[in-house]
Design a protein around this nucleic acid. Sequence first.
DNA 1: AGTCCACAGGAAGGGCAGGCGA
DNA 2: TCGCCTGCCCTTCCTGTGGACT
Length: 404
Amino acid sequence: METQKTIRNIFQEFITKTPQIFKNREVLTSEFTPEIIHHRNKEINTIASILAPSLKGARPSNIFIYGLTGTGKTLVSKHIAEELEKISSQGNYPVKVLYINCKMKKISDTEYRLITELTRMLGYSLPTTGLPTDYIYQTFFNALDSERRIIILILDEIDALVEKMGDEFLYNLTRINQDLKQTKLSIIGITNDLHFIEILDPRVKSSLREEEVLFIPYNATQLHDILKHRAEIAFAENVLSEEVIPKCAALAAQEHGDARRALDLLRVAGEIAERMNDTQVTEKHVDMAQEKIDFDRVIESTKALPKQTKVVLWAILELSQTKREDIQTGDVYDIYQNKCKEIGLYPLTQRRISDLISELDMAGIINAKVTSLGRYGRTRVIMFNLSEPVKEKIKAILNESLVV
DNA sequence: AGTCCACAGGAAGGGCAGGCGA
DNA sequence: TCGCCTGCCCTTCCTGTGGACT
């Protein structure tokens, strides 16, 4: 019964002694949609006026939205979509909005899954695999047409999908209006890859790009303003010390004006202060938050790696601690093979390892750059420059999961 | 100027899992 | 149960390449 007492004590203590930092923590998460979106009036007006004709039964132009991460693209689109649905429900021309994030693993990261998911959103059930793609398309088409209204399809992070499987499906989607009889479809494509549009097939490009909206990054002043509004709702009175918001804004502005990053910094700083039983959130907590966010991200992605990739990372870690000069793909492969033998794992080919290394690079765990060493060939030069505590933690995770 | 290293990375295809209808 | 479909991971085979060395 000893433990129960302790737990109760912790909870009791939390209620009575912990100084209250947050009034409403949710406001600082990315799921939260604020009533007013600051510093995006121009973009909101543009998009809203493009979509407005749908209220009179006309199909609005397709819109292509681009801008870096944390510039409010998703927030603005969702916000406008909600308003549009609300207002149209009172009129004669109902509008339905389908929002889908194309990067959602196992839900919408392939053509089949995307179309299946969309069809499900329209209220039809389909198996996750097994059917021919044309059947899936047909079901989707029928579901769409039986809606008898204007449908606005928001494809967020559309670049992820096109990169993976080409722009064929976009071509199909943009042409679907020719065959629909009772429904009209408009597409809003969102991407944070500014060069994305260039790689598209010209036919797709022109139809997707009927209208274009660019979201430019927030500057430090705007970020400051956004944080201030949210902080007023999020934090208790007099909890934030003066320098906190400017600091968060400045740090996020350095990272191309990413508002999500700014909000994360502010929230995590508050959480740290809370856990340390401090009565105020200060600059010190922001610094700690900055470190913690990076730390957590790397650790979480390490844990989630498949076994083979873990062995590759293990090999890189090993090399980074023993070898002075640059780490190359070939070195990694040698160590990797030995480790596989040691733990009784079937080694993959170097071609595959090459891909796994670039996946680790994309996950931001390592830095790998293709470099020519002249006479000594062309290879990836791998750098593993994380802080020592992070390295230690990664090592522990790998050693734990790579036992015989 | 030419060679040649040590790979990068594209293309095609094999094999398996999960899931369908008949 | 079988035949068929898709996604996913992986192999095999291949061509391409920046720049130090000769």
